[in-house]
Structures are given as C-alpha cells and as structure tokens.
C-alpha cells in the first residue's frame, strides 16, 4: 500500500513509540507525542502497537492513496475527510486507490495519527522508525514530510490485518461498524494532569508547591516537541543548590532560573541540570501530547505507587482490547 503527500501541513513526521536504547549516548526518545492515539490507530487495523504512523500537527494537510489502502486514525488535531465525507476515527477504514484525503481542523487538540496496514516502511534507525529532526535520523530521510513524498507500507501484515482488509475491500470507502472508543481511556477532565513529586520537590517554597497544585498554567507559544514552556505563577525556591546534570525523561517538569516551568516532551534532551518539581504520570503524558499554545492545565499530585499502578492497568486494558480485536477476526 502506498500514499503520496499532497500537502504536508505544518509538521508531519513518521513516528512510532520511541527510541529507548540509546539514551546514554544522548539520543532522545522521540516517538509520538500522544502514544495512546498511536496505539489505538494501530490496534484498530491489527498492527503492532509500535508500527510507524504519521504524526500530523493540526490540519491543513492532504494525502492521496496510490493503491487500495487500509488505514485508521486517532487523535484530536484534525478530522479526515474525502470532500464532504467525514472518515470516522478509531476504526479500520478502506480507502480505494487514487482517493484524496484532507485533514480538516479539529479545535480540540493538536495531533492526529494515521496508521496504515503493516505500518509505514521506513528504515529502522537505532531500534526505532521515529523521526528526530535535530540529528536528521529516523523517519522519512530524517526529516518532516514534504510535498510529493511517497510512503509505502511494510509488506508483512498480521493475519488480523489481512482479514480486516479483505472484509472491507470494495469499490468505495468502507469501514467497520465497530470502533474503539478512545474516550474510554481518557479522564473526564483532560486538562487536569496527574503528577508525581520529583526528587527536588522539597527544594521549592511551600507556597510555590500550593500554587503548582492549584493554579492554572498555560502553554506559551514557546512550545514544541522538545518541551512546553508554562506561563503562570512563578515557582520560587528555598534550597538554592546547584543541581549536577542528571537524566531527565519525557514528562519531567523542570523549573528554570527565573521560576518558570518547562514540561519536557518526546524530543527532550536526555540530561538536564534544572531542579525538577514533578514528573507527569505516564498515563497522562498522551493528554499533554494533545495540548497547544494557549491551553490551560492544572496539576494534581499522586504517589509514584499509584502512577505505576495506573500505568500497568492501562497496559492491561490495551492488551485486552488487542485480544478482543484478534478474536473477533479469528
């Protein structure tokens, strides 16, 4: 299967769930900002969770299928349409060859993930297909997608994918009756982000901690795949020690010299020297991946035991979903 980029949009890159094994060489994790949406788009068509997808930022992008194609999409940056026809999200969709698909604005989030049967077939670099633009590695030639790029899928597909494809194949756009309700996985309030106090938590003023856990913070314009600068009440310190640079990870919230917070995201550096106030719970990091400048969030503290339990429960639920889809097409 193959698609061609007609309009690349502001930042479209190939991503998977990230590059985890070269952190000691300062190669960042990268990968999708909203990994939950990636996994749902992949699960829906029987792909491996880690299959390479396209991460679109906002809308205003367009691609054309050059073959009969099985896709799914998830995320809140855009709605897929063919002309006036809305393509439903979070379910397998058959798109005939030479159909032009547009991404139309969805104001609720920022990123949309397109999966294709088998995943996009770009080379694996250092154990991942994710794009890291700064070092020009991974993805499609180490860069964001441009007009005219042609992307083929991996030829090997799972038995589930093969069955879904053959059931949906027709003259027209066709999709299953069922869909995955991504909302089931989301909390009622997607702007309340759960965090675990970080190692330097006690370096901050008591009042600053109260502010941190009660006041709104707003993503500044200075926010990208590396991290989000947060505008709001400054976080003051009582312990003014210098921190020796040490490992940080996506979800780490650093406090810079002027008391402003930076939430590190997928392309963040592997080490940092700013004191850390909190770590976003892994279960809520995908919510952060959908934020855009101007969005306001709140933080709520939980224990690290609780964060880990929530993570393991989520993985268990996704595993059950995977098995349910496989069994449906046995």
């Amino acid at each position: 299967m193959r698609i061609r980029i007609i309009k690349p949009g502001i930042l479209s890159t190939i991503q998977d769930l990230g590059r985890n094994l070269y952190l000691s060489q300062a190669v960042p994790v990268s990968g999708a900002m909203d990994t939950l949406s990636v996994r749902i788009a992949n699960l829906a068509i029987g792909n491996d969770d880690n299959a390479a997808v396209i991460e679109f930022t906002y809308a205003d992008a367009e691609f054309m299928t050059e073959t009969d194609t099985l896709i799914a999409y998830a995320g809140d940056g855009a709605i897929l349409q063919v002309g006036e026809l809305v393509i439903p999200a979070e379910k397998p969709v058959f798109i005939p060859a030479y159909t032009s698909v547009q991404l139309v604005n969805n104001p609720s989030g920022s990123r949309t993930y397109l999966s294709i049967a088998g995943g996009f077939g770009v080379p694996e670099i250092l154990g991942s297909r994710s794009t890291f633009i700064t070092a020009a590695i991974g993805g499609f030639n180490g860069r964001s997608l441009q007009l005219g790029d042609t992307l083929s899928s991996v030829e090997a597909i799972s038995p589930t994918t093969a069955i879904i494809f053959s059931l949906l194949k027709s003259e027209n756009i066709n999709h299953t009756a069922w869909s995955i309700a991504r909302r089931m996985f989301l909390p009622a309030d997607t702007k309340r982000i759960r965090v675990v106090p970080a190692h330097e938590f006690s370096w901050f003023h008591g009042l600053a901690i109260v502010n941190f856990l009660s006041l709104p913070y707003t993503l500044s314009m200075n926010s990208n795949r590396m991290g989000y600068h947060l505008d709001g009440e400054p976080i003051t310190r009582i312990i003014k020690n210098e921190l020796l640079s040490t490992a940080v990870t996506p979800g780490t919230i650093q406090v810079t010299g002027n008391g402003s917070m930076v939430l590190l995201m997928a392309d963040c550096q592997t080490t940092g020297g700013y004191p850390r106030i909190a770590q976003v719970a892994a279960i809520d990091l995908p919510l952060c991946g959908q934020l855009k400048p101007g969005d306001t969030i709140y933080f709520e503290d939980i224990s690290h035991q609780n964060a880990e339990m929530l993570y393991i429960e989520r993985e268990h639920e996704l595993q059950q979903l995977r098995e349910a889809i496989q069994q449906k097409y046995l």
Binding site: L244, A247, E315
Partner: peptide
C-alpha cells in the same frame, strides 16, 4: 532492563515496567 544513563553523580536505570512486574 532497557538501558542506563550515567551522569556526574548519578546512574539512571530505564526498564519496561510490564516485564519487571
């Protein structure tokens, strides 16, 4: 176990929680 990141005064050890549990 996935990888470890040595720094000036620390080593951070990364793992897959599902395999560990």
């Amino acid at each position: 176990f996935r990888t470890s990141v040595p720094a000036y005064g620390t080593i951070s050890v990364f793992y897959d929680p599902i395999k560990v549990i």
